[in-house]
Write a protein that binds this DNA or RNA. Sequence first.
DNA 1: CTAAAATACTAAACCGGTTTAGTTGATTAA
DNA 2: TTAATCAACTAAACCGGTTTAGTATTTTAG
Lengths: 338, 338
Amino acid sequence: MAKVKLVDVAQRASVSKSTASQYINGRFDYMSKQTQERIRLAIKDLDYVPNPIARNLKSDKTKTIGVIVRDITGFDTSYTIRGVDDYCKAFGYNALIYNTDFDPETEAKSLEALYQMRVDGIIIASSGENNTLIRDYIDKGMPIVHVQLEHDGSEKNLILSDYRKAAFEATEYLIKLGHKRICFVTQAFKNVKSRNERYLGYVSALEKHNIPLDKDLIQYWQRETGFEHAPRSVLASNSSPTAFFTQHLAITTELLRHLNEESISIPEDVSIIGFDDIPMAEFFKVPITVVKQEPYSIGKEATKLLLENINDKHKHAQKIMIACSITERQSCKKYLLG
Amino acid sequence: MAKVKLVDVAQRASVSKSTASQYINGRFDYMSKQTQERIRLAIKDLDYVPNPIARNLKSDKTKTIGVIVRDITGFDTSYTIRGVDDYCKAFGYNALIYNTDFDPETEAKSLEALYQMRVDGIIIASSGENNTLIRDYIDKGMPIVHVQLEHDGSEKNLILSDYRKAAFEATEYLIKLGHKRICFVTQAFKNVKSRNERYLGYVSALEKHNIPLDKDLIQYWQRETGFEHAPRSVLASNSSPTAFFTQHLAITTELLRHLNEESISIPEDVSIIGFDDIPMAEFFKVPITVVKQEPYSIGKEATKLLLENINDKHKHAQKIMIACSITERQSCKKYLLG
DNA sequence: CTAAAATACTAAACCGGTTTAGTTGATTAA
DNA sequence: TTAATCAACTAAACCGGTTTAGTATTTTAG
């Protein structure tokens, strides 16, 4: 590869390495026009390209950040990454992606790998299982920005959707269509504040419209095992919901699959609104109405915040919330009965 | 951040930097057990982590590869990236993603950026507009593997789907359903061999079944301007196709949109088979039958080949083709008339 | 008993830049 | 006239490792 180094340039321009280096870095303060010209020519003639590794060694900066996500092939995730990457490139940074596949151990390993690699900072959509570990890295001086997920609330820098407001609006949207028994389908709350926020939004919409909260309408889903209670049986139960409000694309997808299998029609038999936009929804048998997040903006904002943290160590922590919006499609119908 | 360096370890273990370095690199050949133990402890006590930048400087390797794609948010592309990344991580490499958004100029810039960064190699799904440039980089010693696209055939290392076979099979699939007038919808061939290969597959299936080739059934689509002839008018023309065979997800999508708008039913009015799998196809009004590529495998194989090239300079070039498969859904029906 | 070989290390050069602390000759101010 | 200032550079240290060449001591072979 390119074997031309700074000494070669310096020699050809008949100056010292130091002067050549100054030129490369645009510090022409005490350098005659002729010298500048000579160096310029030498660089051009030799096709010289500075070695960033050597530079980084001295500066102790890598101009690289790490991004830890669950899976880059996720629809929203891929856009978050795009946002991160676009912002990075615009400021001369590179992003290294680490996929955890929802495994906290892989997450911990990724964190350590990025730390050892001495990336300048990390953006993480964390599992919540490694909170102490993450705090350790922050204490060691690694700037870290959380995205998408807030856990115990100890996160200092984070960018997320305004989950509470979004859930409130989605719930109210259904209520205004006449729905009163709305099934809220979520993953176990655990210590995930972002999930709880959605719940609070749901609850406050019910409260505003004087609809009593029915605990049986809170249904749980797990990535590994699916629904705790089959959607069919939930529909047939006493609480007999007229609408589902699913909290993740994965839940929406699995619900749709279940309903299809049971030949339960949407929106005739039950209405659905889901969190997260759906690819190619326009071609669905029933295009699903969703609460759309802004993954691209989240990626951009997260990177912006991270770079600020990297370049200004005493920047105060920030929590930024990004509005969601309802994309109305055809999975919710007016429910006229009491 | 971690300020502990090799000297600190050496000092604490009362050995020289050299010996400590040997230990770090697992060369215990001439080192007493006690010394090893002392160094081991020193590393542990000090929580020492070697600085990869310093290492790279000496080895002139970055343990990083570049990946140039059109857009990481693409469905297939995201899986290709996943394949690349998984393989990379397994061998201690990192992948840097560069999105070009189909712009040859951005592609050229990405190439240059990666070159300047001294990545160990590059995987590229190229536009075909920068072939000479790419050749220059190869000549400068940069290992480059092409994926997904073959252009003038001068590409030495490449991994792609077996387009000809796949197109043959898709066409034959339609023929066996009774279709004779199959509209082949493609981007302009230009010098893109991969597109031509598909065409050849289509043609040879027709030949095998003694169906004359009708040039009017070759229809063109462009990313910026869409269809050259509206699908509606193609259907109404003399060649009146009974099936469409679209060569890209983007084409399939736009065709679907057109047909929807014109209330042309699939598969009643016309059958469709498309290249590239479709996300969430199971929930479509009409789930589309597709020729599925294996983007994940392509990513893996490409990386495997690239790493081989990086570590064995005299490896001979390889062209690897990966089989596609038809995923039968509901967009093709038997066509019984002549 | 002695030379050769093996063991267990270390000093110093090196990777390719950046930066600090000078140096030199010309100009300016007192 | 002479010290102080300034313009235009350079030598050498430094970043944090790896590697080469070499040294001192012990063991083995003849």
